[in-house]
């Protein structure tokens, strides 16, 4: 019984949140890695692009709510995602056409493109703040919980409750669906293969008749899906605040690099590595050990490796370690 309680405790406070957060990071990390693989630059506008797509979802959610359209127990935001994705893709293609394309055609160094993306970051951030402001917004409606702690305790008779928020379930389900479609697309379709071929060996891809313009466009379209969905899921689960989204770029980069940049599947796993590390290292295990150990051995401190203030620092340290020992990422194998 004590063991079960301890496990539920761990599940509730670390594993479930980590899977959720990991899924959100994973989508962002795949976005980073695709842009890096196909367009060959580190996109410093990542966080703000995700923010941009989410902004549309938030605004449309407010609008839908005001005219009384909803999804019942599901959040209205899910309904707005397709529109937000379209807006996001249009914005990305617009930016690509007027900003990135010039440097791509000129075959500029990746560093230069990265710097250009800093400019895009500024502009995107400005547009977002001018349109929606810098404030913290919640746009979650519908049923909040799938499983409440009290219900769980009643059901099982355990001391520890397990809470599953609907946003956590939605995040995981949507991520699984989106990522499965993406990997099917990349590996099984002609267009997906041509994207991977282009990313692998540009010159040979051109000789094989792959149209670079089309590859670039499809990459941005996929990026639009990933950025918007990742952003909306994060916003539903936590809240939407532009500054937080900008900052999220950092663990997302960490996830992409940990997974081996350019490798979507690595990025996907990298998201979970970062999320689990952040949460496991900063969780206070006192109660967990209280359940497991006899009374005499019970710890009096929090049994916490690092305080939660250092959540980000943990993921960045992992990144530094990975860069030191395996700059190509910890997941080898097929890249995009």
């Amino acid at each position: 019984m004590e063991l079960l309680n301890a496990l539920i405790l761990l599940l509730n406070y670390t594993i479930v949140p980590a899977i959720t957060y990991g899924s959100q990071l994973a989508l962002g990390a795949i976005f980073v890695t695709l842009i890096y693989g196909v367009l060959r630059f580190a996109n410093f506008a990542t966080g703000d692009m995700m923010s941009f797509g989410t902004m549309f979802a938030v605004l449309l959610t407010y609008y839908f709510q005001s005219i009384g359209i909803g999804l019942g127990i599901l959040p209205t935001a899910l309904l707005t995602i397709p529109f937000a994705i379209i807006a996001m893709i249009l914005y990305m293609l617009f930016i690509d056409n007027f900003v990135f394309k010039y440097y791509r055609v000129k075959k500029s160094a990746p560093v230069q493109l990265a710097m250009v993306s800093v400019g895009v970051m500024f502009v995107t951030q400005a547009i977002i703040r001018i349109i929606i402001g810098p404030f913290d917004r919640r746009f979650l409606d519908g049923e909040k919980f799938i499983l409440k702690a009290s219900e769980f305790k009643e059901m099982t008779g355990l001391n520890e409750g397990l809470t599953i928020k609907s946003t956590q379930a939605i995040t995981v389900v949507v991520t699984i669906i989106l990522v499965s479609i993406l990997f099917w697309f990349l590996n099984k379709t002609k267009t997906g293969t041509s994207m991977r071929a282009y990313s692998d060996n540009e010159d040979l891809a051109l000789l094989s008749g792959i149209d670079p313009k089309r590859v670039v466009m499809i990459t941005w379209i996929i990026a639009g899906f990933l950025a918007t969905v990742g952003g909306v899921l994060y916003g539903l689960d936590k809240s939407y605040k532009p500054f937080v989204y900008f900052n999220n770029m950092l663990p997302i980069f960490a996830a992409a690099i940990v997974g081996g940049i350019g490798n979507p599947f690595g990025a996907f796993l990298g998201g979970y590595v970062i999320a689990f590390a952040e949460i496991f290292v900063t969780y206070a295990y006192k109660k967990f050990f209280t359940y497991l150990l006899p009374e005499s051995l019970e710890p009096d401190s929090l049994v916490q490796l690092l305080s939660t203030d250092y959540k980000f620092a943990v993921s960045f340290s992992i990144l530094v370690i990975v860069l030191l020992f395996r700059p190509s990422g910890i997941f080898e194998g097929k890249k995009i």
Binding site: K190, T193, R196, A197, S199, D200, N201, A205, I210, K334
Partner: peptide
């Protein structure tokens, strides 16, 4: 295409 399989190379 070093990161693609043999068959995918032929397909491309």
């Amino acid at each position: 295409f070093a990161e693609l399989t043999v068959r995918e190379n032929l397909e491309v």
